[in-house]
Nucleic acid binder design. Structure first.
Lengths: 156, 156
DNA sequence: ATAATTGCAAAGGTTTTGCACATTG
DNA sequence: CAATGTGCAAAACCTTTGCAATTAT
């Protein structure tokens, strides 16, 4: 797992470097510090959390810079921005293998589940003249630890 | 299609009436006007749009009331609240048959596609000890009218 | 009458922007 | 040294809330 992690981080650094040279961006202290934090942060962290973690290690980094750097990381494909039910966006490292999300209405936790849907859905969409390049699927329900569903409920 | 529409609207009115009597809510002019607008509005409208449409027909209705009434309609299962990439929520009439969404990165339009994913994904989740009560799936890509995907792209 | 509803204005929370200063290449 | 990046404060944005006046039951 340490190896896989190291490989994922190396890939991230490669993507960042490529994006930087392609867009004439600069290699700054803050960006290196923020990237360091982002690569270590738990999946589905909010910007608030990423800012807090960054400032815990590097107090002089401004919140705005974290915002802007996270946006850069999304632009170069290292981070994926997601919106679950919340008011605020959440971020996770882009994975080569797609996965879906299980959102527990009991405890609110977001878990991940293996990709069961990509192939099916891409094919279905293609018959509609739509070329799928990515997908995002959230399943709402109750995890093993939480109470079973009450009764009839709407969609999300 | 007119019949299906009429039936859907009748179902909505039934759900609203049931929810009203169950919660001791009142039947006000504004709520009737807002419901009228919501039932006619295109799918995936934002609150901004619903407010504009309401005020076009009924200038004296306040924005706050639209907010609150839409929340009521979500609570009683008539509307479904969704969040795509946007910053703001979008609303659509709840359908008895689930469907997924195709989000075109070319023109930004949101189309709907038949449910190809629900059964598969619910079963997969169940093996993980998760009880699924709803799902929401967005496929990103390019519709027939828009340019094909450029090349390698991140997840969403 | 009593309790719910309305709508304005104000507050709340997240994300974006303007701009002077510092830093990179 | 020219262009980019930083960070503070302020603005913009969507959403929620307090409250007096209005309305439904």
């Amino acid at each position: 797992m340490a190896d896989a992690n190291r490989e994922a981080h190396a890939a991230a650094f490669r993507a960042i470097a490529a994006h930087r040279s392609e867009h004439g961006l600069r290699d700054t202290v803050q960006r290196r510090q923020i990237v360091e934090v982002v690569l270590q942060a738990p999946a589905h962290a909010t910007l608030e959390e990423l800012i807090a973690r960054t400032r815990a290690l590097h107090p002089r980094v401004g919140a705005t810079t974290v915002h802007r750097t996270v946006a850069l990381l999304v632009a170069c494909g290292v981070l994926v921005k997601r919106r679950f039910g919340d008011h605020c966006a959440r971020y996770e490292l882009a994975r080569p293998i797609a996965h879906d999300h299980l959102l527990c209405r009991g405890c609110g936790r977001v878990e991940e589940c293996p990709p069961a849907l990509a192939a099916d859905s891409a094919e279905r969409a293609r018959t509609l003249g739509f070329t799928v390049v990515a997908h995002e699927c959230v399943l709402y329900g109750y995890c093993a630890a939480c109470a079973p569903p009450p009764d009839g409920a709407g969609d999300p």
